[in-house]
């Protein structure tokens, strides 16, 4: 990943290798203590790893750095980052840069049918419930203006194997909810988390613009001194909407949950038990049932134990489970 710096107004941009994510931060001159614009159209890219290495430990920087100077030396092909620290210590980093092409994602928030704006904190607190390893999440508009987030199970992952997490946010938790009812998009959670933690730390409100599945979702932060955009590709809807899904994402978005579910559990269990005696034919189509050769029902009764002495470890005999 490279970080791109453009002269004129300083902007930092990056795109993922697969081009499924793009981020840009544009700084107004007033963001800085002093700002001298470079030649217009100046552009360079530096290695993200090297750049991040300079700012590795934020608490340490907070403690010791008094001033930071960013200098683009075009002829020398270097980006110079100079940290002026306490006790007269100066740390200078020279990062070699390369010329590069323009990096700009094509997006237009005006073309997005749905828009959602609220404090980053609300969404940050919501995503904390999803496992760190979850790749993608689905955001959807539910009944009553509620906004839902749900784990997205990957294509080809076995149904009934992965845990699915879901939660709903009330419309009054947002500043603005202008979404197409029933709409939903699925995007990369990891990249979203990155933006959320930045937005939460800076207490900036976050706006999400989205359209149909497959079209990019655009996340923006409002700040007078800086414009931040994150553009994420979204998944196309799978074709198999009509079938009852083993995977939970091919269906129309579930309505707000109520306490009563219509379980088929009773009938499922009856089918399970009877197939044990009949053989494979008639076994319920649940993918979680692992076939075994049928055998006659056994007596489940076990021996009762006598006179447990209180305060001693368990007796040796097998106990009835009650």
């Amino acid at each position: 990943m490279k970080c791109i710096i453009e002269g004129g107004n300083l902007s930092l941009r990056a795109a993922s290798a697969s081009r499924s994510a793009f981020a840009s931060f544009l700084f107004a001159p007033l963001f800085f203590q002093r700002y001298e614009p470079g030649p217009p159209g100046a552009r360079c890219k530096v290695l993200m790893k090297s750049f991040l290495g300079v700012f590795r430990s934020l608490p340490a920087l907070d403690k010791s750095v008094e001033r930071c100077l960013l200098l683009l030396r075009l002829r020398a092909g270097q980006l110079v980052l100079q940290l002026h620290c306490k006790h007269g210590v100066t740390r200078t980093h020279h990062l070699a840069f390369q010329e590069c092409e323009q990096l700009q994602a094509v997006f237009d928030t005006q073309c997005c049918a749905s828009r959602l704006r609220g404090p980053a904190q609300v969404l940050a607190e919501a995503v904390v419930h999803f496992p760190q390893t979850l790749a993608e999440v689905t955001l959807g508009a539910g009944a009553g203006g509620r906004i839902g987030l749900r784990s997205h199970l990957e294509e080809g992952s076995e149904p009934g194997k992965a845990m699915v997490t879901e939660l709903w946010l009330a419309p009054d938790e947002f500043q603005e909810v202008a979404v197409v009812p029933g709409s939903r998009i699925t995007f990369c959670l990891k990249e979203f988390r990155g933006l959320l933690s930045f937005a939460e730390a800076s207490s900036l409100p976050l706006t999400i613009h989205y359209d149909e599945p497959g079209r990019p979702a655009i996340f923006t932060l409002d700040d007078p001194l800086m414009e931040a955009h994150l553009v994420l590709a979204t998944l196309l809807d799978p074709e198999s909407d009509s079938q009852p899904p083993p995977a939970t994402n091919g269906i129309s978005y579930p309505p707000a949950p109520s306490d009563d579910f219509t379980d088929g559990l009773e009938s499922y269990m009856a089918a399970l038990e009877s197939s044990a005696c009949e053989g494979e034919a008639g076994a319920p189509p649940s993918p979680t049932f692992s076939p075994r050769t049928p055998c006659p029902a056994e007596s489940d009764r076990m021996e009762e134990e006598d006179g447990a002495v209180p305060g001693t470890p368990p007796h040796k005999k097998v106990r009835d489970g009650h």
Binding site: V122, A126, H129, G160, K161, A162, M163, V164, T165, E166, L167, W168, L169, A170, D172, E173, T248, P257, Y268, M269, L272, E273, A276, T288, F289, S290, R292, C295, A297, E298, D300
Partner: peptide
């Protein structure tokens, strides 16, 4: 939660039901 209603998070944990004949 800060809103009027509580936040409800649900987790569906897949399980396999073990039939009686395997209980032993």
């Amino acid at each position: 939660s800060l809103s009027r209603s509580s936040r409800i998070v649900t987790h569906d944990i897949p399980v396999k039901v073990i039939p009686r004949r395997l209980w032993s």
